[in-house]
């Protein structure tokens, strides 16, 4: 009896993996992008899960024009916060943003999520080396 179980253990394990894979697929419609995980945990409480922000208090992060224009500045904002007014979709937002607790890898991941999700113009995916370079140039 035990011998039979051991024989089928690898198969059962494999089926388990497939089940988790399918569950994830069904839950999210796709495998969750690691950058989306960062977004959900670090950004969504203010910028909302749908990226719309909160009324005129917290800006949306789903505007491709804004993200394209300021793509290179985002690593600085996520590291040092943002203390000046910005205009997104014609609305001015002037509340300071404190930086979330994210490291360079998480910043790269969330930026790749944004790039993917909103079809941004940056020619390639970014990595933590690129993020570190941008942070060196922060004002």
């Amino acid at each position: 009896m035990k011998q039979t179980l051991l024989k089928y253990l690898p198969t059962l394990f494999f089926i388990g993996l497939v089940a988790v894979f399918i569950y994830n697929l069904l839950e999210h419609g796709r495998i969750e992008h690691p950058g989306f995980t960062v977004y959900k945990n670090q950004c969504a409480q203010c910028h909302s899960e749908d990226g719309n922000g909160i009324r005129e208090l917290v800006p949306p992060i789903n505007d491709a024009d804004f993200l394209n224009t300021y793509f290179d500045s985002i690593p600085c904002w996520l590291t040092n916060g943002l203390n000046h007014a910005i205009v997104v979709k014609g609305i001015t937002y002037d509340q300071p943003m404190y930086p979330p607790k994210v490291d360079e890898i998480q910043i790269a991941n969330v930026m790749n999520y944004l790039r993917d999700e909103y079809k941004l113009k940056h020619p390639t995916e970014v990595n933590s080396i690129w993020v570190k370079e941008q942070i060196k140039g922060c004002k």
Binding site: Q45, C46, I54, R55, L57, V58, Q95, P96, M97, Y98
Partner: peptide
């Protein structure tokens, strides 16, 4: 408080 960065925006969103 208005300059609260962490939980307040979400709280205000729920209060809305």
């Amino acid at each position: 408080f208005t300059s609260c960065p962490s939980i307040c925006p979400k709280m205000k969103k729920e209060m809305l």
